[in-house]
Every structure is written in C-alpha cells, then in structure tokens.
C-alpha cells in the first residue's frame, strides 16, 4: 500500500515539473568561415556588444607573437553580435543577432612595409562607434589583439 502511495506522490512530483516552453533556435546567429581560428573575444558593455576575432594561420601566428611583427597575408575577421540576456539565467549576457563583420587583410609593398586593408559589413549602414571611422586605427585594433590563452 505504501508503494502505491509513493507511486502517486512521485508521479505528482514529476507532473508538476512538466510545463515546458520549447525555445526557438536561431541558426542565423552562427558565423562560420572555413580555415579561421578563434584569436580572442571581446565584450563591450558601453555599446552592448560581444565579439570574436578570428584569424587565418598567419593572423593566428601574429596574435601569439608578443612583438606583433605583421607580415603579408594575415587575415582577420571580427564578428560582432548584439548582447542579449541569456534566457533562463539572470547573471549572464550572450550573443544575439550579428550586427557587423569586419575584415582586415595585411599586404606588403615592395619595400616590405605592411599595410592593413579594412572592410566592413555593417547592418543598417550604421557605424557602431564614431571612433571606428578611422579605418586604419580600427584595422590595427583588430590585428593587434593578443591571442586569448588556450591550454
């Protein structure tokens, strides 16, 4: 008899937890480009964004180099998402929709001087920050970030 009552109680226990609202997955928030490794990530609470800087092998090598001797052929991609609160956990913000994809490519002239080609795809034609209008400054900001520590 005790077993029957236990069964009733346990079923009540689980039925009380069965209220579920399925989330809508958002694959459009994913970014991927073959051959790119994560160099680092950035949070900017002032403008409410969260970013990842990816790089090709050359860019990755440069990011690991404390002296930052850039060479031709490095390719950086900085993807920036709008921050949003993490669903179901107050205390964490996460990436929402992608708002910009910036690309930096290093090239060298005959004298061996390295320059930085910068291009960006910004949603709604808006710049995130007026300071970023200086493309060379922005390119150096992206290309000069040190690699985050991985084991």
């Amino acid at each position: 008899m005790k077993i029957i009552f236990f069964a009733v109680i346990i079923s009540m226990f689980f039925s009380a937890c069965s209220e579920k609202k399925a989330p809508v997955l958002a694959p459009e928030y994913l970014f991927h480009e073959e051959g790119q490794k994560v160099i680092t990530s950035l949070i900017n609470d002032k403008i409410g964004t969260i970013s990842i800087i990816y790089g090709n092998e050359g860019a990755f090598r440069s990011a690991l180099d404390p002296v930052k001797n850039h060479v031709s052929g490095e390719r950086y991609i900085m993807v920036t998402w709008k921050q949003k609160p993490m669903p179901h956990w107050y205390g964490t913000d996460m990436n929402g929709p992608i708002i910009s994809v910036e690309t930096v490519i290093t090239r060298s002239d005959q004298a061996g001087r390295v320059s930085f080609d910068y291009s960006s795809a910004l949603c709604n034609g808006k710049l995130l920050d007026s300071k970023d209008k200086d493309h060379n400054h922005r390119a150096r900001f992206i290309a000069d970030q040190p690699a985050a520590v991985f084991p």
């Binding site: 994913l30 970013s51 964490t92």
Partner: peptide, 20 residues
C-alpha cells in the same frame, strides 16, 4: 574542438568570466 564552430559567446557577469 578548436576547429569546431562557435555556437555562442557569453559574458558571465555573475562570476566575472567570459566564455566561447
């Protein structure tokens, strides 16, 4: 995993950490 895709990146401000 370093060759996998990123599915999210987070700012866990409750504990002072950031995650990829």
């Amino acid at each position: 995993f370093k060759t996998w895709r990123i599915i999210s990146t987070t700012d866990k401000y409750d504990g002072g950490s950031m995650r990829v």
